[in-house]
């Protein structure tokens, strides 16, 4: 009877995951080595053309590299912005700490689309940014590069993913015992040395896991590029979106998707290995 329960309880989950998660993933893996006929219909003709295209056509491999560099920029910027805020809340705030904590958690759950839209209002040609600069007499024509460019997409992604990085960094700051910091100061270390030698190594796992999240999320994002990007802004995920939409080349789209998945897996694996290594030390 007991053993019977054990499998009955878990069966719906296994069935659901198999049908709606494992099968779709196996399917695009298969689709990535198929071809299309002249009408864009997928035909069952095994080949690796899509993968060859990705690694020989600069449109694909350059976009992949560029997106990766942008993702690193986004992750680093999020880390740099999170450090003072998380440090401040963990060490300097004494009253209303939970209020400040809520302030960094709230945007984490806030609508993506609403937050992306805000930057369109701010950076647009008649937006707050340009009209304030014009009113102040700093410029006389709206600056156009601030919206519909790689710049605006990166800024928006930093904005959206900042809470994902700030929360784990704050958590690791919070776990540091205050007596360690006092001990370091008693032993004659100044604040900078204390931060670099005592605090920073202790928050590094939080920094790494937050940074990894921002990196992976940027790699998979196609919305910011399509909302705030210019005609030349191309992220790897926008290519996937295009290949499954207007360009209608599903095998190639699947292959780019698979390459993206592998990249994400490598990043996640490296980061979790690092964390494990850190735990054992």
């Amino acid at each position: 009877m007991k053993n019977y329960d054990k499998y009955v309880l878990i069966f719906p989950l296994l069935l659901w995951l198999f049908l709606f998660l494992v099968l779709p993933y196996l399917f695009i893996l298969t689709q990535s080595v198929l071809a299309t006929d002249d009408f864009g219909k997928v035909v069952y003709d095994l080949n690796f053309d899509s993968y060859i295209k990705i690694f020989t056509n600069p449109l694909y491999y350059e976009t992949l590299i560029r997106t990766f560099i942008y993702a690193i920029i986004v992750a680093l910027a999020c880390i740099l912005l999170s450090l003072p805020l998380a440090y401040f809340i963990a060490f300097k705030v004494t009253k209303n700490k939970s209020f400040y904590y809520t302030l960094i958690v709230l945007p984490f759950w806030m609508s993506y689309i609403v937050r992306a839209y805000a930057w369109k209002v701010i950076l647009g040609e008649n937006g707050i940014f340009n009209s304030s600069l014009i009113n102040m007499g700093i410029i006389d024509k709206p600056l156009r590069f601030v919206l519909y460019s790689d710049f605006s997409v990166i800024l928006c992604l930093i904005y959206i993913f900042l809470p994902f990085v700030c929360i784990p960094i704050y958590t690791s700051f919070e776990q540091i015992s205050k007596s360690l910091v006092e001990a370091s100061k008693d032993l004659g270390a100044n604040s900078w040395v204390t931060f670099r030698k005592v605090i920073f190594p202790l928050i590094l796992p939080g920094v790494i896991s937050g940074g990894t999240l921002a990196l992976v999320l940027t790699l998979g994002d196609f919305l910011a590029a399509s909302l705030l990007g210019g005609p030349n802004t191309l992220f790897i995920s926008s290519i996937v979106q295009n290949l499954f939409g207007t360009s209608n080349d599903k095998p190639l789209g699947s292959a780019v998707g698979v390459v993206l998945l592998i990249l994400v897996f490598i990043v996640l694996e490296l980061s979790s290995r690092y964390e494990k290594k850190h735990e054992t030390q």
Binding site: I28, V216, L217, G220, G257, L261
Partner: peptide, 10 residues
């Protein structure tokens, strides 16, 4: 954990 876009197209 995986990019939503890949789950979506799959």
């Amino acid at each position: 954990t995986l990019p939503g876009i890949v789950t979506g197209v799959a």
